[in-house]
Design a binder for these strands. Structure first.
Lengths: 337, 337
DNA sequence: CTGTTAGCGCATTCAG
DNA sequence: CTGAATGCGCTAACAG
């Protein structure tokens, strides 16, 4: 049994402070049970020796690991870093650590990660999980689990309802006089894509414009760029893209074809992860991804504390962030309402 | 003592299979020490009960946690996600899990995270650590530790030498006929910035062009945009920016002022995190961040296995990735060499 | 090949 | 208020 580095233990502190091991333990977990002076004596001895409580040993004894796991399908997708960051900050408030898992858009990998994490975490947060409902239910039956952007009945979940923001986007386009728009879709199995697609359809109907769909398989810059010909062929005057990455691709593709945005064509993204970092600055539907991470972890903490699984369904509204990629079109085409 | 979920233990499996606990343990860790038939008997019993080895308990006994910690100063900085992803893939090869820590650009927070991770990880990888050399040494004395983009004598480190790529950038500009360039600097304390700044200076001297510096405090899109006036005032015909984010800001600022890149002005970024996602596509110095993550973890694994701390200094070369933001300037200004 | 024994570091009864 | 004893789940000698 080779220890990498033998950390200083509770026993050494106990000896140094001339007390029992249990007192050292209490000094860190229940200082109120000890006389103030012995507490300080122990704490001093601990600091002198550089003692740090061993979380693993504590976990074994208490059954509380102080860790949670967070999985995302693709950390390189700019949607997730803010979510991860916010999750960590929230976890930190309860002194929890986060295991991060990158599912690589692969259900098998994601499942493997969860199994590997089990036994050292108290609960899971799965963001945009690629697992099947059945798999999710299976894991949820073993540990407290909160979903982000995945709607499984009976399991705590926080959903970013892009519908509200997309509706606003369509409405705004209608007011600007557009009559024919296209939705550049994302993965058909994605919950978010279904939301957005439906919102485009419903709002278009309501505001009396026609909406077509140009499909992409994977949301990416390349996919957006490749979709441009199809988009232009529809004769639409504006497009709403599944996400900002795709929109950025569309933007580049348009520029290559000397179609000036917004003069010749209007464009709206989703997720608002690019901020004003494009030129022209991309109008987009805000996504609240960090809020989603925060809420999810906070929910998980509640569940852990209460010890009961709650069937919560927390939805986060979105809204349109207007920047520079839209323009109105000639009055003769304007919407009559 | 409330267990969240009482997992099935080795003892229950032992009883079910009619063997000793140690045999169950061996069935999972050293099956070769048992007769094939008892192994299958145990494995069957285990599966029937849904037994999963408890990693925490195992860690306590062996001192091998099977986890490592990775800290980054800001996960939202596009430099890091690829690094994190590659680190995870490499860790996964050795069946290690990763604790992710986001230092929030704050040494205090970073230090706190490391202390919190200690006791459940076997080693650390610190990417672009904001800690002082002394603090790093302190932690390195307690646990195996590998640095990324931080050069501390005696501690294993992998360094992305942007010097080579920046040198190429300057050389390329010189060949295109530029005589006067500007370096849009990053944080003065950053190791990377020092590398890049020095490379611009040295290469400029070598290729006989004059280089000025326009300083920004924090590398960001905004900073780049705000630097544009100062850049133009220098009368330079090209700029090299500290990173792609800054370069993208410069690009947007130029566009706003109707300075056409690359026709009127040439621009080069660093890190190459934007790919071809700008328009025009940004020429940049590749950064190899994922390779850095991979190598760092692999190094850490080596150290863990060997049980000895090695003073490795692994440097990764960079190179110029030429895209569309550069142009040559009139022959009368061309470099004579 | 397999059972017995003894901890890993800590929290927590139970006695003082 | 504090010390002694017990066990968390598992691995690792040490015997057979």
């Amino acid at each position: 049994m080779i220890k990498q580095i033998k950390g200083v233990t509770i026993s050494q502190v106990a000896e140094a402070a001339g007390v029992a091991r249990s007192s050292v333990s209490r000094a860190f977990t229940r200082p109120d049970m000890l006389s103030p002076e012995t507490v300080t004596r122990i704490l001093n001895a601990a600091k002198a020796l550089g003692y740090v409580p061993n979380h693993t040993a504590r976990a074994l004894s208490t059954g509380r690991y102080g860790n949670i796991a967070l999985t995302v399908p693709d950390i390189a997708n700019p949607f997730f870093p803010p979510l991860i960051q916010a999750s960590q900050m929230e976890a930190d408030r309860s002194d929890f650590c986060i295991f991060l898992g990158n599912g690589s858009e692969d259900p098998v990998q994601e499942d493997k990660l969860l199994k590997r994490f089990a036994g050292q975490v108290e609960g899971f947060v799965l963001a945009s999980s690629r697992l099947s409902d059945a798999q999710i239910r299976e894991h949820a039956s073993q540990h407290p689990l909160v979903l982000i952007n995945r709607d499984v009945e009976g399991i705590a979940r926080v959903l970013i309802d892009s519908g509200t923001g997309v509706w606003q986007a369509v409405e705004h386009l209608a007011r600007l006089g557009h009559r024919k728009i296209v939705y550049v879709s994302g993965p058909s199995t994605s919950w978010s894509n279904q939301q957005r697609s439906a919102a485009v359809r419903d709002a278009s109907e309501k505001f009396n414009l026609t909406a077509q769909t140009v499909a992409t398989i994977v949301p990416s810059f390349e996919a957006g760029k490749n979709a441009v010909d199809a988009i232009l062929k529809t004769g639409a005057s504006a497009a709403i893209a599944f996400d900002d990455l795709t929109a950025q691709g569309v933007l580049a593709g348009m520029a290559e074809r000397h179609v000036i945005v917004p003069k010749d064509f209007s464009l709206i993204g989703c997720d608002d992860v690019l901020g004003a970092m494009t030129y022209p600055a991309l109008t987009s539907v805000s996504n609240q991804s960090s809020e989603a991470g925060r809420v999810a972890v906070s929910l998980l903490m509640e569940i852990l504390q209460a010890g009961t699984i709650r069937d919560v369904r927390h939805t986060l509204e979105t809204h349109l962030v207007i920047r520079d990629t839209m323009t109105n079109i000639p009055a003769e085409f304007a919407l009559v309402d």
